[in-house]
């Protein structure tokens, strides 16, 4: 869960995920038109691996990003942090 101590860390991790996702979206739109482009595919796989690691770190420390990522056994953290459109969201 986000608290004062790791708020900055969570904001930084989320920004890192956003940046990886931006690269993935761009690569995916390219691959749709050029599905056999080996260099683009290698880049895609590298990004997806990086994203997996960043997602795991974020969800462990900050809360779930999807409904499949609630780490806590005794708290439904999905509804406990700011929603993305709130000004104080990460």
């Amino acid at each position: 869960m986000t608290n004062g101590n790791n708020h900055a860390r969570c904001a930084q991790l989320l920004q890192q995920i956003r940046e990886i996702d931006f690269c993935i979206v761009e690569t995916v739109l390219y691959l749709d038109a050029y599905p056999d482009h080996q260099q683009a595919l290698e880049y895609y796989h590298r990004l997806v691996e990086e994203r997996g690691k960043a997602m795991e770190q974020y969800e462990m420390a900050c809360g779930p990003l999807t409904i499949y990522g609630n780490q806590s056994q005794n708290s439904w953290d999905w509804v406990k942090t700011p929603w993305p459109w709130e000004a104080d969201a990460d």
């Binding site: 989320l14 995920i17 956003r18 809360g63 999807t66 942090t81 993305p84 000004a87």
Partner: peptide, 15 residues
């Protein structure tokens, strides 16, 4: 579709 709890690009408007 699966919802991801983040904006694609941040929106932080002070005023």
């Amino acid at each position: 579709w699966i919802y991801e709890r983040k904006l694609q690009y941040p929106v932080k408007i002070k005023t």
